[in-house]
Design a protein around this nucleic acid. Structure first.
Lengths: 208, 208
DNA sequence: TGTACATCAGTGAACGCGCGTTCACTGATGTAC
DNA sequence: TGTACATCAGTGAACGCGCGTTCACTGATGTAC
């Protein structure tokens, strides 16, 4: 991810964006913990201090990266679903869409491990207020919404069950993490696909 | 987790163990990244250097913590399964055991978030060799073995399907993480239980 | 039973590192007249 | 069209921090004789 513009002037012109791009690169390379303000500035060719004209500090930069990463993930899922052929039977079509979305999810995670990890995981700014109170799940994470809608469509097309969104999400999220940095890393591509398909079967059949 | 002994002599007597306990405490409080050699030594009341008599360095300390955490997790699962009443119908019994193990898994994760995160997640010692080659999943992670065996028992009791172990694991792992540090943290205990049970239903029905 | 001495298990000072952040500053930009 | 000047967006040096790790050391321990 490289910044678009770049007149080599004293005033950068688009430093905020350039820093975000650099930070996204960093996350892609090594996950959220590699998002380091000084390094992002270094890559853009600017003094660390300059970043403070555009961000409150490291925290804000990291949050921006996370948002970006979530968007990319959702896009990957939608792309995967778009590639999926439809079906006359609406139930079958709904199943296929669900599976495709999940596949897109895991695929993104496997392809961009660092960015994926940046997308989730608490960005705890040292001394975090530990999860308290009621409150709903954070609103509008598109990846999650996509899964939920796909499950609802599956319901409408004939099944029972609902609110299984979180379950589906859990499965694909967990699978991604186990493949990425857990004990399932080191799997051959072949075995990995097996595991993915088995999990998808569970998700789909669990929703039926 | 406090060390057992402690004659206040110049020679500590059981420093290795004491350091491990301190490190486990640290992980419990803040996850693997909070496992800091200097802090562990500080808590034991010993100079940082002393740790090097017993560990290669931070990496070895962290690996030891991980092993410990995995053991504790497996124990929690087995305890949960032991609490579960049996059933005459072996298929039902197998289902219950599977669900209980999963519940134990998620329960442990929710109760000991830091320790749980220390149990999995690559301990990458900076400049890690990225997941390559074939190789199987890491051997003998008891938590995983437990799930796998439960699924096999379920098969034997009547179902089809097998090798769904990874799928089940993915689900509980993902769920745990979403609850712990993902967008599902902040859920009320009530809604959390809903989500847990829905996911478990998916796991069990997916194995059927 | 007493003693010399090798070894074991600590100490404390210091190293270099990279981080986030603050400070006082200065060069570039664009707007009012 | 030209100029004064406020503002904006950079710079570079410095801060304190805590980390992992190394070094040369010393006090405690236990064993051979």
């Amino acid at each position: 991810m490289t910044a678009i513009s770049g007149g080599k002037t004293y005033h950068h012109g688009d430093l905020r964006n350039a820093l975000i791009c650099a930070a996204v690169d960093l996350a892609t390379e090594g996950g959220p913990e590699r998002v380091v303000l000084r390094e992002a500035a270094r890559r853009v060719g600017v003094s660390p201090t300059a970043a403070y004209r555009h961000f409150e500090g490291r925290g804000e930069l990291l949050r921006t990266v996370r948002t970006h990463a979530r968007t990319r993930l959702a896009e990957a899922m939608e792309r995967a679903a778009a590639r999926e052929p439809g079906a006359d039977d609406p139930a079958l079509a709904a199943e296929r869409r669900l599976a495709a979305l999940c596949r897109g999810y895991v695929g993104f995670a496997v392809e961009h491990p660092g960015l994926y990890r940046a997308a989730f995981g608490a960005v705890r700014p040292a001394g975090d207020p530990p999860a308290d109170g009621a409150a709903s799940p954070e609103p509008e994470i598109r990846a999650f919404t996509l899964l939920k809608e796909a499950l609802e469509a599956l319901d409408r097309a004939g099944g029972r069950r609902s609110a299984a969104g979180a379950a589906a999400w859990s499965a694909v999220h967990g699978l991604s993490l186990l493949l990425l940095e857990g004990p399932l890393r080191r799997l051959s591509a072949r075995r990995r696909d097996d595991v993915v398909e088995t999990t998808l079967a569970m998700v789909v059949s669990g929703a039926r």
